[in-house]
Design a protein around this nucleic acid. Sequence first.
DNA 1: TGTAAATTAGGTACTTATACTTATTGATTG
DNA 2: CAATCAATAAGTATAAGTACCTAATTTACA
Lengths: 217, 217
Amino acid sequence: MIKIILAEGHNVVRNGIRLLLDKEADIEVIAEANNAKEVLQLLSDGLKPDIIITAINLPHINGIELLTKVRSTYPEIKLAVLSMVEEEKYIIQAFKAGTTGYMLKSVNEFELVYGIRHMYLVNERYLCNELALRLLDKLLRMPENKFDVHIKDIEISKREVEILSLVSEGFTNQEIADKLFTSKRTIEGHRQDLIAKTGTRNTAALIRYAVLNSIIE
Amino acid sequence: MIKIILAEGHNVVRNGIRLLLDKEADIEVIAEANNAKEVLQLLSDGLKPDIIITAINLPHINGIELLTKVRSTYPEIKLAVLSMVEEEKYIIQAFKAGTTGYMLKSVNEFELVYGIRHMYLVNERYLCNELALRLLDKLLRMPENKFDVHIKDIEISKREVEILSLVSEGFTNQEIADKLFTSKRTIEGHRQDLIAKTGTRNTAALIRYAVLNSIIE
DNA sequence: TGTAAATTAGGTACTTATACTTATTGATTG
DNA sequence: CAATCAATAAGTATAAGTACCTAATTTACA
């Protein structure tokens, strides 16, 4: 039996999730909590869940802080974030804080249950498929795959990359010239060459090109 | 009933997968194939699978090529790659070739079946959890810049994104103003605001910021 | 060792962006 | 209903970048 504490500030949402979980024979919601404090109270009262499912936007103490606290005192308890779509950005923080699972509230009941079982049985972190696909799309969009994005035979020299990088950091031609102990006109010349060879119109477009093609970061 | 063709060059592996799938009431393996040619033959013979599960390292014609061929002739058939660990790198090619699912052979039977159902029922691409975690770790290992910098509560309005996008394409303030039927001074104002709120020094740095933070492409 | 490419540098004219300021309008929201 | 904010717009002055041009070194390499 997988014992769960459900931490979620909104009653409706919490009840909905509970209904879903109660249908499963191998899952038991042993307690619910409205906020982080209640969770910590439950734990110090001696309750021993296998998994704590928590929202991010809990009142007072948010989900990430809760993760950190629980993690340090009860390292054997697994933590799963069930996040609103808008909170996708917390994914990095959550995993750095030691969460085992991260799902968006858009998961269907099958995935919710599957994810919980995966965390408990396979003992592996779980990321919901929608988030996985977002990461995948990021990967697909990344110009790292030099096969088909960096197609054009544009050769950019080391010096040019150096200058491009400084330009992208916001330095002016004069400042770059000073840094590289050369003339402002030289930098201007390089910038011109780069704009010409990349087929861009100005620095803004050049920088976009350079970042998208991983010439610079 | 989810009808499946299983393409895999190694008999032992293929038989193993088949055994797993045959246990499921809603999944039927309607045919097996040793190589890509056999798959194409089966399809031209009129077989209509919902999903083709294929390995990458098929003899003669590899899995990616098979994906492409099937995709162009039978766009309604979903494709799933079941890949050896060593072939992880094909993930990008596979998705670009239109695969719906990608799993490593390290998936357990629950995930294999779950993934198949997910593709078929939810009609969404599926990436196995191990790969999702690898992507996640990539994200976590990345220095602050690439993904999570703009999480610093910087709100960028729709209008600003629109302008940012045009700026990054190389248009001048005047040109952008003409496109948007507004004044050059307005665009200048927006550009200033953006530079201020992103903490950058000029347009070059602003565009770099915007691209790295996926505000624009 | 000769040639191509990279890096350097300058002239001149012109365009564009930036830094500071202020101010009005309309929409949203507590 | 007041407050906030996004979007609008402008003045003024200066800084920076762009479009042409030419041309001298140095470096890489075949």
